[in-house]
Design a protein around this nucleic acid. Structure first.
Length: 472
DNA sequence: TGAAATGTTGGGGCG
DNA sequence: ACGCCCCAACATTTC
C-alpha cells in the first residue's frame, strides 16, 4: 500500500493557515489529509473563548474552509472523545498538530497523545506558533527569566534562530468527512448580532493576514519606534488577531521584517514579537498567571469593589476622554491601540483601584486578539504584580497622555464625538474649560458628556499609599 | 512602555 | 554698575 492512500488527520487549532504550517506540511507528505477543527474550549473553565474571539474564529474557519476547497471538517465537544471517533471512523494512521500553550491544553494534549499511542495511532506535534519554545529559553542557572530585556537579548537572540519558513504543501490531497456537523453547528456568532459593527473593521483569514503584514511593512514600519505611540497614526501592525489564530506565523512576520534590512524600527518590531514570546514563556513557567498575582504580596492589596465604577470604565463613560475613546474603540472594533491599552489599564488599576482581573476579563470578552498569555501577562505588567512589571508608582495621567500622544485629538474625537467641537486645549480636560468654551462646543458636562468620575490627583495619591503599604 | 516634587541654573527686570 | 529676586527651563529625586 502506498503512503498516498493512508488517511492522516491534520488537527487545526491555532494555526488556521496553509503556509508555514509545520504539522500540515508533514501531514500532506504522509497521505490523504483529513483536516479537522474541534471547538474544544468548553474544557477551558474560566477561559472559554470570549464573544469577539468567537466571531473572529467563525470567519477564520470559513476562510480556511474556502482555501481547502470546502474540505475543512468542523466539530465541537470534548476534543479527546471527538478525535477518537474520527480516528476510528476513518482508520486514520497518524494525527498531526501544532502545539498550543494554554496550560489546560498542554495537559490535555499530552493525555491525547498517550491515548492515541495506546490505540496504535501515530501522533506528531510541531511548533507552529512560537519563534522559540517556551522551555528552550532559560538563564544559565536553569531558572526562567523574569525580566524582558535579558530574556530577549541574551536568551532569544543568542539561541538558534527561528526555523526557516515552509511553503504551502505542493500536493495537499484533502478529504471531507460526511459526518462532520459543520461550521454553523458551532454557533460562534452571537444571537443578537452586535458583531455586525465589527465587520467593517476587519478582513479575516490567511490572505488578509499576509496583506496586513505587507501593508504594514510598506507603510507603517518606517517610523515604527516613535509612530507606534500615536493611536491616530497607522504605525502599528495590527497583526495581533492574525497571530493569535495562526492565520500568520510569527516566523513569517519576523523574516519578512528582517528581510527589509536592519534598522532601529525593524529591531523594535521584532522585539515586540519578542514580548509575545516572553508572555508565552511566563505562562508556561507560571501556569497560574491568568488568575494569580505573580508577586504574591499583591494578594493582600485592598482592591475596591465598585460595580458601577467598573461599568463606567467598560462602557467608556469615565469622563476622561482618552480613556473613554479607548474603551469605545474596544467595544466598537474589537481592538484597542497599544498605547491606549496601557492608559485605560493604568486608569482601572491605579485610579479606580479595581482588581486587574476585571480588566483582564473584559478584554478577554471584547478583544478579537484576546490571547491568554499576552492578556494576562500584560495586565499583570500594568498592575505591577507581574514579571518585569511597571513599578507601582508609574501611574499614567490621562490628561497628559492624551495631550502627548493624540495632540490634535484625531483619535479621541473619532470615538468621543460629543467632544468633537471642543478646542484642543480642553479636549482632554473639558472640566477645566470656561463655560463659554463648553457652550460653543455644545458640551454640557454631566449631560452630553460625563463629568470626571474621580479626581485624578487624589486617586493617584490614594493608590500610591495603598501600594506603599504592600512593601511593609 | 510616568508624573510630580524638588533642585539648579542663568537671563533679565529692577531698585 | 551691582546685587537681588523672579521664574522659565532643565535636571534630579521621589513616589
Amino acid at each position: 500500500m502506498s503512503s498516498a492512500q493512508h488517511v492522516v488527520i491534520h488537527w487545526f487549532r491555532r494555526d488556521l493557515r496553509l503556509s508555514d504550517n509545520p504539522a500540515l506540511f508533514q501531514a500532506a507528505a504522509a497521505g490523504k489529509v483529513l483536516p479537522i477543527y474541534i471547538l474544544d474550549d468548553e474544557d477551558a473553565a474560566q477561559h472559554a473563548m470570549g464573544g469577539a474571539s468567537r466571531w473572529w474564529l467563525h470567519h477564520s474557519l470559513a476562510s480556511l474552509d474556502r482555501a481547502l476547497g470546502g474540505t475543512l471538517n468542523v466539530y465541537r465537544g470534548n476534543a479527546q472523545a471527538v478525535l477518537m471517533q474520527i480516528v476510528k471512523r476513518h482508520r486514520a494512521q497518524t494525527v498531526y498538530w501544532n502545539r498550543c500553550y494554554e496550560p489546560w491544553r498542554m495537559k490535555r494534549d499530552a493525555h491525547i497523545k498517550e491515548m492515541l499511542k495506546q490505540e496504535g495511532v501515530g501522533a506528531e506535534s510541531f511548533n507552529g506558533s512560537l519563534l522559540w519554545e517556551p522551555w528552550e529559553i532559560r538563564k544559565d542557572d536553569g531558572t526562567p527569566y523574569r525580566v524582558f530585556t535579558p530574556f530577549y537579548r541574551r536568551g532569544c537572540l543568542n539561541a538558534p534562530p527561528p526555523r526557516e519558513l515552509l511553503p504551502i504543501p505542493a500536493l495537499l490531497d484533502s478529504i471531507g468527512d460526511a459526518a462532520a456537523p459543520g461550521l454553523e453547528s458551532l454557533s460562534l456568532l452571537p444571537r443578537i448580532r452586535w458583531d455586525k459593527q465589527l465587520e467593517p473593521h476587519w478582513y479575516i483569514g490567511e490572505k488578509a493576514a499576509q496583506d496586513r503584514l505587507y501593508a504594514f511593512l510598506r507603510d507603517g514600519i518606517s517610523d515604527y519606534k516613535q509612530g507606534r505611540n500615536f493611536p491616530a497614526k497607522a504605525h502599528v501592525s495590527r497583526l495581533s488577531p492574525y497571530l493569535h489564530f495562526g492565520e500568520i506565523s510569527p516566523h513569517q512576520a519576523w523574516y519578512a521584517a528582517r528581510a527589509q534590512g536592519d534598522d532601529a524600527n525593524i529591531d523594535h518590531f521584532c522585539s515586540e514579537l519578542g514580548w509575545r514570546e516572553f508572555s508565552y514563556h511566563l505562562l508556561y513557567q507560571f501556569p497560574e498567571l491568568p488568575r494569580k498575582n505573580l508577586q504574591s504580596k499583591f494578594d493582600r492589596f485592598p482592591w475596591r469593589h465598585d460595580d458601577a465604577a467598573l461599568a463606567r470604565w467598560q462602557l467608556g463613560q469615565t469622563g476622561y476622554p482618552i480613556v473613554d475613546a479607548g474603551m469605545r474603540e474596544l467595544w466598537q472594533t474589537g481592538y484597542m491601540h497599544n498605547r491606549v491599552r496601557m492608559i485605560v489599564a493604568s486608569f482601572l488599576v491605579k485610579n479606580l483601584l479595581l482588581d486587574w482581573r476585571h480588566g483582564e476579563r473584559w478584554f478577554w470578552d471584547c478583544l478579537v486578539d484576546a490571547d491568554l498569555a499576552n492578556n494576562s501577562a500584560s495586565w499583570q505588567w500594568v498592575a505591577g504584580c507581574g514579571a518585569d512589571a511597571a513599578p507601582y508608582f508609574r501611574i499614567f495621567n490621562p490628561v497628559g497622555q492624551g495631550q502627548k500622544f493624540d495632540p490634535d485629538g484625531t483619535y479621541t474625537r473619532h470615538f468621543v464625538p460629543e467632544l468633537k467641537n471642543i478646542a484642543d486645549k480642553y479636549l482632554f480636560c473639558p472640566w477645566e474649560a470656561p463655560q463659554s468654551v463648553l457652550a460653543d462646543a455644545d458640551v454640557v458636562l454631566g449631560k452630553t458628556y460625563p463629568a470626571p468620575m474621580i479626581d485624578i490627583s487624589s486617586s493617584r495619591a490614594l493608590a500610591l499609599q495603598a501600594f506603599a503599604e504592600l512593601k511593609t
